[in-house]
Design a protein around this nucleic acid. Structure first.
Lengths: 213, 213
DNA sequence: GGTGTATCTTGACATTGTCAAGATACACCT
DNA sequence: AGGTGTATCTTGACAATGTCAAGATACACC
């Protein structure tokens, strides 16, 4: 384990005793640290340090470390959903294509926020069901995905499959691809967004043929 | 953080000073603890304690905690590969069906060893590329998967897709489904193997139509 | 039997999450 | 204005972790 910093509020922090909006600041700092480190290595103390407050300050805004990270994850799901709906909104085409674009947005989000994505989907949050906001936001994101699939199925030229199957396959495919990319098990270390897009479109195309065929 | 045990070798351990095969024991214990806890909560000290040795003993067999866990993960990949080849070996049918069975084996393995699967694919191991055995074994597992796909493509009734696309899609689909199941984002809390099999087969079927269509 | 070396233990340190008790300052009421 | 209450923040403390250095032990070989 690294040995480095002492546990005092950051020097140069000229905030007053009362912070103003520490809750918001903690979330921002946590998100920033998450760009740099694995979720399991983002410590409460480091967040507090970076926010310029003492180690125990966060406990007045979050029950514990997991609650803070859960809040960050919840915001992640909100962003994910926003990215998906925004993308379909700016896409013309039949429902199947639009759903494909949604998948692309999903994968892009993962690649652009790998650690956040890991926090959202990894095992770091062990009591996921007990974090209300997280439940709500992740549910909303899934709902958006599900709605798009519903559309594409209704218009789909009726391959033999049931809707449930297809939805599950699509979600699994997109989620799996995101995981493989985030974990760098697939693709080059530094892929451009364009390259990721192409990859995601290719992967989902096979599935599209499966349902449309 | 929990407060509980003291850091002494387990009482009742009547081993001699020298252990015999501590390395093996540590791996076994780690795997056992992994059935119970998240990878990030399997501590070196707990492993040592459970193995009946002092906290520093593992350092004579592994460079650090991550190296030990990497070795466990490597064995996980060995098991995964074994499960897959065993399954295809006992399957008759065309290459596409055989590959589908491989996917089923993959998903089954994940569901039956959720924490191990998380260790193998999650972000806990940050220096994956520096663990030689892990690299080797995971490579071998992927190779087995890839080979099966190669077969199924060659015999496949030539849909429009390229082999690379299909392979990627298949892997992503299977991996994603495994993840969703392991994280309990899909399926009931305690599904039987049969139920998982059905689910996996349904999911991969859509893909099969995509390539065969 | 003596010596060497691999193996294991003990002690120590920096780090973490968390709680309890004290300090501070803002907000409101008279 | 002044006083009081309460939300907010800090300090001190404890158990736990990973890791290293230095000491103890026992097996293996000459």
């Amino acid at each position: 384990m690294p040995r480095k910093a002492v546990d005092k509020p950051r020097a140069g922090s000229n905030r007053s005793y009362h912070h103003g909006d520490l809750r918001r600041t903690l979330l921002d700092v946590a998100l920033r640290l998450l760009e740099e480190f694995d979720p399991s290595h983002v410590s409460l103390r480091a967040i507090a340090r970076e926010a310029g407050v003492s180690r125990a300050a966060p406990y007045h805004h979050f029950a514990d470390r997991e609650a803070l990270l859960a809040a960050v994850a919840a915001e992640g799901f909100r962003s994910l959903r926003a990215a998906m709906v925004e993308r379909v909104a700016s896409t013309e085409g039949n429902p199947l294509e639009r759903m494909q674009e949604m998948g692309v947005a999903y994968v892009l989000f993962a690649v652009q926020n790998p650690q956040l994505y890991r926090l959202m989907f990894g095992g770091e949050l062990r009591r996921r069901e007990s974090h209300e906001e997280l439940q709500r936001e992740s549910g909303a994101a899934y709902a958006a995905l599900g709605a798009a699939m519903q559309d594409s199925m209704e218009t789909g030229s009726g391959g033999g499959g049931e809707p449930g199957n297809f939805a599950l396959s699509a979600w699994a495919l997109v989620h799996g691809l995101a995981m493989l990319l985030v974990d760098q098990r697939v693709g080059k270390p530094d892929m451009s967004d364009q390259q990721v897009e192409v990859l995601a479109r290719q992967a989902t195309e096979v599935l599209g043929r499966g349902v449309a065929g």
